[in-house]
Nucleic acid binder design. Structure first.
Length: 155
DNA sequence: GCCAACGTTGGC
DNA sequence: GCCAACGTTGGC
């Protein structure tokens, strides 16, 4: 499978690029959307490049880079009644939800903001800027990925 | 905090 | 299978 590129949303109040830098790697769990689950289950591969996107942030935008370090596997938080992401329908045999592990790569020299992305015509087809689009795990085209790195001064 | 847009649930 | 109600996301 060719290398793919992804964007993962996170609220930095809950988990930021700085947290990932400190932790080195993290389990990207708690995703409870089937489309996002399917990307993690079927398409994300070790070595794929990932943008870490800060939502509900000041500013909102792409804050750093990571790599997939473990491909999709069962998200056990769905089985834990004490976990906020507990799903009573999940079982050990059918965990329903998946997660991947991601490893910190680098923090961008500056956040490439949602505002800038919206203003750049070449990025108009990014999923991120489609009206009402809320996917928290989404694919990014290679060209868009490179463009954003360039905007961050890391091209 | 507001609220538009979306996904999911559940009654029928 | 329809669709209203509800919960969540996420920009502002």
């Amino acid at each position: 499978m060719p290398k793919r590129y992804w964007l993962l949303k996170t609220e930095p109040d809950a988990y930021s690029i700085d947290d990932l830098q400190r932790d080195k790697t993290t389990c990207w769990d708690g995703v409870r959307n089937y489309q996002a689950r399917n990307f993690m289950r079927d398409q994300m591969q070790v070595g794929d490049d990932v943008f870490i996107y800060h939502s509900n942030a000041q500013p909102t935008g792409i804050a750093g880079l990571a790599k997939v370090s473990k491909a999709g596997y069962a998200d056990s938080t769905a089985l834990d009644p004490k976990d906020v992401h507990f799903d009573p329908k999940a079982t050990k045999d059918n965990p329903i939800w998946m997660r991947v592990d991601v490893a910190f790569e680098k923090k961008l020299g500056r956040v490439v903001t949602l505002e800038e992305i919206k203003a750049e015509k070449k990025l108009a087809t990014m999923l991120l800027v489609q009206r009402g689009q809320r996917l928290s795990v989404q694919p990014v085209e290679a060209g868009h990925f490179a463009m954003i790195l360039k905007m961050a001064g890391q091209g």
